[in-house]
Design a protein around this nucleic acid. Structure first.
Length: 278
DNA sequence: ATCCAGGAAGTCG
DNA sequence: CGACTTCATGGA
């Protein structure tokens, strides 16, 4: 066990598998802030404060059970990293981002967030999501807003989503929210990856890459390798047979890394993006 | 000004 | 099936 709980406080002892900045900057989550010492994540309707203290990570939350699940604290990344290091290509990336963890985010929030992420950059994605929550999210105090509920999202039209800067994705959001509101089943935790991907891709604005991000960041499916513009460079540098298709590259990479594809992708994505390897 | 960003949908062949 | 085009927006 890498953590302990006392009242509203979680102490994570093993910082070699929990680095706050690395987790926040690995492109899986957009609603966070920090001044270098104290950090805050708002996930769904729960605020988590994070900081380092005496060589441990301290997490404070009004909902500790939520936080333990959200940060997936029962998972030990030690053996996973050890196995992935057998692949030479991953060695530097793992050393660089060894404290990355994959979060278990809310499906609705992840779906909307990654629809917005399509052909977009991270600062803009953050801005759009912050405006979305500012307008539609429940007030959590401390000037913080929750991610909007399904009903709140469904109460707005395309004009609203354009107004907050979603651009042409506004229509995708409206249609997808309507599908979910009319009964689309979001309980895909026990559905196998291929079937869950197929189901998610029925949603407007959800293609292969966005579906893989949802599978990985909300449903904790480890056997997917989302391929974006950065991962195309990773694929290129691994010396694999040339390909133009993101879908083909994703399949090839997940064949290589198997159940650990998702975390392998996170180490590599973070390494490439932080070091601006183009 | 042109290009790029955690791409997807629509159309065409 | 694959290739090609279009889709907002803001920073570099």
């Amino acid at each position: 066990m890498i953590y302990s709980v006392l009242n509203d406080k979680i102490t994570v002892y093993d910082t070699s598998q929990f680095n706050i900045e690395q987790i926040l900057n690995s492109g899986q989550i957009f609603r966070y802030s920090g001044d270098g010492k104290n950090f805050k994540i708002i996930a769904k309707n729960t605020i988590c404060h994070l900081k380092y203290d005496m060589g441990s990570v301290i997490i404070k939350s009004s909902n500790v059970d939520f936080a333990v699940n959200f940060f997936d604290l029962c998972k030990d990344y030690g053996p996973i990293k050890q196995k992935l290091r057998e692949n030479n290509f991953l060695d530097r990336a793992i050393s660089f981002g060894e404290g990355i963890r994959i979060l278990k985010q809310d499906p609705l929030e992840t779906i909307i967030s990654f629809i917005i992420s399509a052909n977009n950059n991270i600062p803009r994605i953050k801005g759009i999501l912050n405006r979305l929550c500012e307008y539609l999210g429940e007030d959590l105090g401390e000037e913080d807003k929750a991610f909007p509920t399904l009903d709140a999202l469904a109460s707005e039209n395309t004009d609203f989503y354009k107004k907050i800067g979603a651009g042409y994705r506004a229509e995708y959001i409206v249609k997808t929210v309507a599908m979910i509101k009319s009964g689309f089943n979001l309980d895909l935790y026990r559905t196998d990856t291929a079937e869950a991907r197929k189901e998610l891709m029925r949603l407007y604005g959800v293609g292969n890459k966005v579906a893989d991000c949802i599978l990985l960041f909300a449903y904790n499916k480890g056997d997917v390798f989302p391929v974006d513009t950065w991962c195309k460079r990773i694929y290129r540098d691994m010396g694999l047979p040339e390909s133009q298709s993101c879908k083909h590259m994703s399949n090839a990479l997940s064949d290589i890394f198997g159940e650990n594809s998702g975390i392998a992708q996170q180490y590599l994505y973070y390494y490439y993006r932080e070091n601006k390897i183009i």
